[in-house]
């Protein structure tokens, strides 16, 4: 068990709802769900959620902590915002799902090789390096996430598309070496470090 997870279990014991309210983005909305299921029916990847959003909300209230946080479900969110605009009680469902995914990821409970978890991590780490996304490095990092051999195979599968994009001037091979970026990389790094510290203290990650 990660230290952060052990600390959370000790702090909240059986009150998972309280844990979500205090630590998950927009978590204070969870108790407002009235179980109509419109969110689940509106989700483009709805059939692939082991536990659709309204079920997740009920499971949180029922204290089924491990099942929720180790679930693959929240990682199915495409950020289409259908659920938000249709929810009769205006719960910010998309953000709650993002928040739960982020929290599970932070505690080390999210499924290890969940592809969206892997991609999302690559994406953020890619963009904070220079302040802007380097699309070529991001694609390559994704192709090679399962090792060199699979990476070559993945790259070959996308070869025609890649060459087409290069020809259309929508992919720059030189991005591998330099590429776009912000000037004030130092300031961005310092500001993000501070933001992480403040967030950890606001969400009681330290005590």
């Amino acid at each position: 068990m990660s230290d952060l997870n052990a600390q959370a279990v000790a702090k909240y014991r059986t009150n998972f709802l309280k844990e979500v309210e205090e630590r998950v983005e927009e978590g204070e909305w969870v108790k407002m769900c009235m179980q109509c299921g419109v969110c689940s029916g509106s989700c483009p990847l709805g059939p692939y959620w082991a536990h659709p959003p309204q079920e997740i909300f009920m499971m949180i209230r029922a204290g089924r902590r491990d099942e929720v946080l180790t679930s693959d479900s929240m990682w199915m969110c495409t950020s289409c915002y259908n659920c938000i605009v249709r929810c009769p009680r205006k719960l910010p469902i998309t953000h709650i799902m993002h928040g739960l995914a982020n929290y599970a990821h932070r505690l080390g409970l999210a499924p290890k090789n969940q592809p969206t978890r892997v991609f999302a991590t690559l994406f953020w780490n890619n963009l904070i390096r220079t302040g802007r996304v380097n699309e070529l490095k991001l694609s390559l990092a994704l192709y090679f996430k399962d090792g060199f051999k699979q990476g070559i195979q993945n790259a070959l599968n996308m070869q025609k598309t890649g060459l087409g994009l290069m020809k259309a001037k929508r992919l720059n091979p030189f991005e591998l070496f330099s590429g776009h970026g912000c000037k004030d990389k130092k300031g961005i790094a310092a500001m993000l470090k501070k933001a992480r510290e403040i967030e950890a203290s606001r969400k009681h990650f330290a005590n």
């Binding site: 983005e25 495409t78 990821h105 991590t121 953020w124 302040g131």
Partner: peptide, 23 residues
């Protein structure tokens, strides 16, 4: 001048809440 990435729709998982807003 020197604008940066917004974090996009997938930045939440690693980035969290405040770092995203700060960007």
């Amino acid at each position: 001048p020197d604008w940066n990435c917004c974090g996009a729709s997938i930045g939440y998982a690693e980035g969290g809440e405040l770092p995203r807003h700060v960007m």
